[in-house]
Amino acid sequence: MFDDRFGFGFGWFWHLGSFIGGLILVAAVVVVAVLLVRYLIVATRAAQFYLDSHDTVRPAAPPAATSTATTPTATKPARTPKTPPPAV
């Protein structure tokens, strides 16, 4: 009678099912959050790699006032396009 949903004395089935359903729902939310964070981390690294590999040559900083020696500036080598595979 007390919290008996179906009138057969099996109210504890309802509690057990609600508990298991809640655990599944919480686990699904945690999995989605972890996947979202992993995606954002990988996407950020990929974007940084893209920017680093497609970066144009930046202008050199002006030499320091106290330094009279000149140092060569490091530039990236020019990229060469990939050659297509030979036709068979």
Rank of each mutant, 00 (worst) to 15 (best):
G9Q: 00
T56Y: 10
V32E: 09
G9D: 02
W14E: 03
A27T: 09
G17C: 01
G7C: 01
G7Y: 01
P86Y: 09
M1H: 00
P63S: 11
V32S: 08
F49I: 08
K82F: 04
D4W: 01
V34K: 04
P63A: 13
P63W: 12
S53I: 15
R79Q: 14
P59R: 14
A69F: 06
V88D: 03
A46N: 12
L40K: 13
K76G: 04
T68Y: 12
A43W: 06
T68D: 13
K76A: 09
T66M: 10
F6H: 01
G22E: 01
I24M: 07
L25K: 09
P59Q: 05
I24G: 04
P86W: 05
P72Y: 08
Q48H: 12
T71K: 12
M1P: 00
F8K: 05
T71A: 14
G22L: 01
D3I: 00
P86L: 03
L35Y: 08
A87K: 09
G11D: 01
T70D: 10
T75F: 07
T70N: 11
R5H: 02
G11K: 00
V29T: 13
P63H: 13
L16W: 06
T68Q: 05
A28C: 08
V31Y: 04
T44M: 05
G21W: 01
Q48C: 11
T75W: 08
G7K: 00
A61V: 06
V57P: 05
T71R: 13
T80K: 15
R38G: 06
Q48K: 15
A69V: 15
T83K: 15
F10Q: 14
V32Y: 06
K82Y: 07
D52A: 09
D55L: 13
T68A: 08
S53W: 12
V57F: 07
P84S: 04
F49C: 13
R45D: 08
D52Q: 11
W14M: 10
I20W: 10
S67V: 11
T73Y: 15
S67W: 09
V32F: 12
D4T: 00
F49L: 09
T83Q: 15
V37T: 14
A33F: 02
M1E: 00
G11C: 03
P72R: 08
S53Q: 15
P77F: 00
